[in-house]
């Protein structure tokens, strides 16, 4: 097992032994289960409601978890001084950072797989039809989680967990609005506002590209080219953030 894999697997072990992760996981599963409670009041639109509530709950819990975990990833190592024993090992700082992020994404992925399995099990239990849009909604959420984790992770490599989490939550909201901001600004008469809208759009991730929950709710068709381009966009955005984190981290003194 290479050093990189050892680090990633250790990150997963850390999450498993972290009470907060465990609590969130249990809570999220319980919340998904409880969506069945809405069954009796909304018999007519049952398929829509189970999709809406199920995917919504899954997305909310995973986004919160991804932000919580990633924002503490590096800052906690520095605060607790565990970083000294790690960065001094025969391992490049880049490998250390990417190994930590990989471990984090392993945790997030396992939790998402658990929730998705439960969600689809419930759908089939209630004989609610599963469309390609449902799979797209779950799959694209995974790319959104990469982008958000990379933001939290980049922030946590030079600021505290509080600041990192705050910034990441802000990026989450702004990122879902960034395409709206862009459209709004492009309608403006002023060239300056148009430019500003463009700048905001290119600096912030366009998180609405990963949101296929409305498609799933209304059983709308999705095209694979659209999905592929969103996935590539997510990974590219993540790659840039990680590269930036590595550059900043490489020059840093740990005193």
């Amino acid at each position: 097992m290479g050093p990189f894999i050892a680090l990633a697997l250790n990150g997963f072990r850390e999450a498993r032994r972290n009470r907060v992760t465990l609590l969130v996981a249990i809570f999220a599963l319980a919340m998904l289960m409880s969506t069945t409670l809405v069954l009796e009041i909304t018999v007519g639109t049952f398929d829509r409601v189970i999709t809406d509530v199920g995917l919504g709950a899954m997305s909310l819990m995973l986004v919160l978890l991804a932000i919580f975990l990633s924002s503490g990833l590096i800052s906690r190592e520095i605060e607790r001084r565990t970083i000294f024993l790690m960065v001094s090992k025969p391992l490049s700082r880049g490998a250390f950072l990417v190994g930590r992020l990989a471990g984090n994404m392993l945790t997030v992925t396992v939790l998402q797989l658990l929730m998705a399995a439960l969600f689809f099990a419930m759908m089939s239990f209630y004989e609610s039809p599963i469309s390609p849009a449902h799979l797209a909604a779950v799959g694209m959420l995974w790319f959104e989680l990469w982008v958000l984790s990379a933001v939290g992770f980049l922030m946590s490599s030079f600021s505290s967990q509080m600041v990192s989490a705050f910034v990441t939550v802000s990026v989450y909201f702004a990122g879902h609005l960034s395409s709206d901001i862009y459209k709004l600004a492009s309608k403006s008469e002023s060239g300056a506002i148009q430019a500003l809208g463009k700048a905001v759009y290119y600096v912030l991730p366009d998180l609405s590209r990963f949101n296929y929950r409305p498609h799933a709710t209304y059983y709308a068709p999705v095209t694979s080219s659209e999905l592929l381009s969103a996935a590539a966009y997510g990974m590219a955005f993540t790659g840039v953030l990680v590269a930036l984190a590595v550059v900043l981290f490489n020059r840093r003194d740990f005193r």
Partner: peptide
């Protein structure tokens, strides 16, 4: 660094 073993001041290994 492969040939070096290091113990920092007040070492902090992962507590978990």
């Amino acid at each position: 660094r492969r040939r070096v073993g290091y113990v920092p001041e007040n070492p902090a290994p992962y507590e978990y």
